[in-house]
Amino acid sequence: MKIALGSDHGGFHLKEMIKRYLEERGIGYRDFGTNSTESVDYPEFGMKVAEAVVSGEYDRGIVCCGTGIGISISANKVPGVRCAVVSDTYSAQMSREHNNANILALGERVVGAGLALKIVEVWLETEFAGGRHERRVNQIGDIEKKYKG
């Protein structure tokens, strides 16, 4: 599995912790930035990760900002992305099983480090259930097509 990572300044420390977590487990990743706590704009990094995932170069993505909200909104603007803001392990599991979320968004100022890493673990280990959920995920894709122009 290959993971695309990105954050703004508000999620930088959490992204760095996630990198260490992935390294310890031998999971490949690429860090799309940012590389410090200097103020930057989250849409740039949400888009970079989203494009990397949609291209197929990376299997999934993880993005972080202060709350996870802004960077997730940005990532979700890229057609084919299903980015879920998650702050508990049950939602992490359901975002994969039912929604086939391909990007996970976390808020450094919202979720503590231990919980965040447990969320990442559950999210990475959970597979899409398919079945009736596949029909619904396909309907999301149909909505994207309708508004793509």
Rank of each mutant, 00 (worst) to 15 (best):
M1I: 07
M1V: 09
I3P: 04
A4V: 07
L5S: 04
S7E: 01
S7K: 01
D8E: 09
G11H: 12
F12T: 06
F12K: 06
M17C: 14
I18M: 10
I18Y: 03
R20P: 00
R20Q: 13
Y21K: 09
L22F: 06
L22V: 11
R25I: 01
R25V: 01
I27L: 09
G28I: 01
G28W: 03
Y29S: 06
D31N: 09
D31P: 08
G33L: 05
T34C: 11
N35V: 02
T37K: 07
P43C: 00
F45H: 05
G46M: 01
M47R: 05
V49W: 05
V49E: 01
V53Q: 00
V54Y: 00
V54S: 02
S55T: 08
G56N: 05
G56A: 07
Y58Q: 04
G61P: 04
I62K: 04
I62N: 05
C65W: 13
G66V: 07
G66I: 06
T67D: 11
I69L: 15
I69S: 14
I73Q: 07
I73P: 05
G80T: 08
V81C: 08
R82S: 10
V85C: 09
V85L: 13
D88H: 00
S91R: 04
S91G: 11
S91H: 08
Q93W: 09
Q93F: 11
I103A: 04
L104K: 12
A105H: 11
A105M: 10
A105S: 14
G107E: 14
G107R: 14
E108I: 00
R109A: 15
G112W: 14
A113Y: 10
G114N: 14
L115E: 15
A116K: 14
I119A: 00
V120Y: 00
V122A: 01
V122W: 04
E125A: 15
T126R: 08
E127K: 15
E127M: 10
G130H: 00
G131S: 15
G131W: 06
G131L: 09
R132S: 11
H133G: 14
E134S: 15
Q139F: 12
I140E: 05
G141S: 12
K145M: 10
K145Y: 09
Y147R: 00
Y147E: 02
